[in-house]
Nucleic acid binder design. Structure first.
Lengths: 376, 376
DNA sequence: CTGAAAGCGCTTACAG
DNA sequence: CTGAAAGCGCTTACAG
């Protein structure tokens, strides 16, 4: 029989000269002398096919290095087993860990992930989401979205579940994973209070940007709990990056009396603060205690290692994927998951100098200082 | 006409109850009273369609939020406009930057990128590559491949172009982008020599692992050029990570006489070395000069900032994508691109102490020390 | 400039 | 357990 020869590929190779002919399910069918339906079943481990036939088919397929086309399957099943992840920038250590969590979870469930940068540009973010729609991904996760709830109308017609991770747009969205900024910050500052600090500064992100206001609220709350008067001049703003932290710290060092501790919007801000502190010949934590937020690997290598609020980035990534999986399965409810941070106490925080030896470097604004420490 | 009503979606919605009916090219055709062929052409901006008709079709499509299925198109065209990137781990600052370069270049050419971790496990690496094959990606780039040339036979039948970036398998492969390890290391060490150092240590990766031997050769070459006798006890091995750097540095500090400078396999190794050096009450670069390799962002935040050999990671990513594009277009030649590193001189390197003030911390092994400096 | 037709490579009721 | 048939949503010669 002619149709039996190992010669593979139809004459349409002429149509796409560049593309090498790939063996298809039909080729395997011909070789195994069965219908392509049977091949399809055998390859998918359907119980509907005779075990011996199935084995034979699989052997032939494997011998030929045959791999069924996921794109053809997707067209037939209306599922791609694919998700899209849009990130601000992949070369951001925070994002990288989140993506790792997503990918690890995705692969467990036989999903592949598309990755796209949007450079924190809302327009690009929408563009990327649309390109994912074109690809018919089964779900999308967006980290640090700048669009957030504005998606709602677009999503309506897209029919693709989306979950937002640390949405930076100030509005609610049906499905999201969010770090508990308030509680994380409150604990960080409470830690400083418990060490005896009373003049505690806050270096925020750009004013009202991102999670700045939530973290600021946590800072305020901790102060209130300790009956420490809030001092507006102890609040300055950076830009969420080292550069901003450097400048903000300069401002802080220029105001008298000095603070004895600084809670930073995030680790990168703290990294910048270190630099300024060193430049002034001061030492952490001897002269100044420093706390960050995020727990980037970087903080571990600082001298001294940075006390910070850990965001379980990888877990958050996994959670996002799991939420997506539920939504895809149709068993997902609307929800905004709040993830707890964890205070990682390292060597950048200690009791203030004045505590150990009454130095004159700082003086008290707040009346009636509480007894040294305060424990929960 | 019945077929004219805006009612969209065929009755097959019953088959996939979960999947919401999507509007297809046929629905648009019905609304525009043209054939779906014409819709296809109009949407693809084919000159073969009447401008007015095209405009009308596009308007209708856009009103309905219609987005043509890339998967259907892929099946028809035998191109997915998709590439796969396999990385050891995405939460590695080196990898992240490379991926960014790839993605930026990909998006320019309307390509989407699949990302997959392989955890430096050759088996997983092959698995991931096969999953990419299933997805019919047009090309694949593998960073720090552990399989390398072993791919050859598999690739033969896969018919998917692959380019390797910093292949870690000690063998040649048709298409690769590689940093010039030898020359980068040679320059790094020559820099130390030029500062007056003569007892220069090398902390490698695990012996013979990765690019260790190439970087070691560069070290040797620089020594030879300066007529410095190679001292085996000045070569120790870490693991390419901070932990290994710490231990290796301990070993180095335990051998007498001390070295005055250390060239590290990479930045992470150097980061570990910093820690040990500080722990011994010594200071960089006063007591010891330190040079890394890679130029991770991290190095900038060290105290002092780390002198290192920069790998143009993003550029290398772009180059990999460009090479892939050529291969896909069929205009690619076999080639192994060597990329030049760049010595970034920062504050972790300086003249040795003995130079400034003859201290007794080190003594010379090599006979006939050359006159202090040596410039090219 | 337009439409009818064939085809891409699978899946899956349907009928043996 | 198996095969023939229809369909997934596009593209693209082919013939007007």
């Amino acid at each position: 029989m002619f149709s039996d020869t190992p010669a593979i590929g139809k004459s349409n190779a002429a149509l796409h000269p560049a593309a090498a002919k790939r063996v298809s399910i039909k080729d395997i069918a011909r070789l195994a002398r069965v219908s392509h339906s049977t091949v399809s079943r055998a390859l998918r481990e359907s119980p509907l096919v005779n075990p011996e036939t199935a084995e034979k088919i699989r052997r032939i397929a494997s011998d030929r290095g045959f791999r069924a086309s996921a794109v053809a399957r997707s067209l037939a099943t209306n599922r791609t087993n694919t998700i899209g992840v849009v990130v601000t920038s992949i070369d951001d250590p925070f994002v990288a860990e989140v993506v790792k969590g997503i990918e690890d979870e995705a692969i467990l469930h036989d999903y592949s992930v598309f990755l796209a940068n949007c450079h924190a540009d809302p327009e690009r973010e929408m563009k990327v989401v649309h390109s994912f729609e074109d690809r018919r991904v089964d779900g999308i996760v967006v980290t640090a979205s700048r669009v957030g709830a504005l998606y709602a109308p677009v999503l309506e017609r897209m029919h693709i579940p989306i979950v937002l991770l640390n949405n930076q747009h100030p509005s609610q969205f049906a499905h999201s994973i969010l770090i508990d900024n308030f509680e994380g910050s409150r604990q960080a500052v409470a830690h400083l209070v418990s060490l005896g600090h009373r003049r505690i500064a806050y270096i925020g992100d750009r004013f009202g940007h991102g999670s700045d206001s939530e973290r600021f609220s946590g800072y305020r709350a901790a102060l209130d709990e300790a009956d420490i008067l809030f001092q507006p001049d102890l609040v300055v703003h950076g830009d969420g990056k080292a550069e901003g932290g450097r400048h903000a710290m300069e401002k802080l060092l220029a105001t008298r009396p000095h603070c004895t501790a600084v809670f930073c919007y995030n680790d990168m801000t703290a990294i910048g603060a270190y630099k300024t502190i060193r430049a002034h010949g001061l030492t952490v934590p001897r002269h100044l205690s420093l706390v960050g937020f995020d727990d980037l690997p970087l903080g571990l290598y600082m001298d001294p290692p940075l006390t910070t609020v850990r965001q379980p980035k990888q877990d958050m990534g996994r959670m996002a994927m799991q939420a997506l999986l539920k939504l895809i399965a149709g068993t997902g409810a609307e929800q905004n998951l709040r993830v707890a941070g964890e205070l990682m106490i390292r060597q950048s925080t200690a009791a203030p100098l004045e505590h150990a030896s009454q130095e004159n470097q700082t003086c008290h604004y707040s009346s009636a200082p509480k007894p040294g420490r305060r424990r929960k």
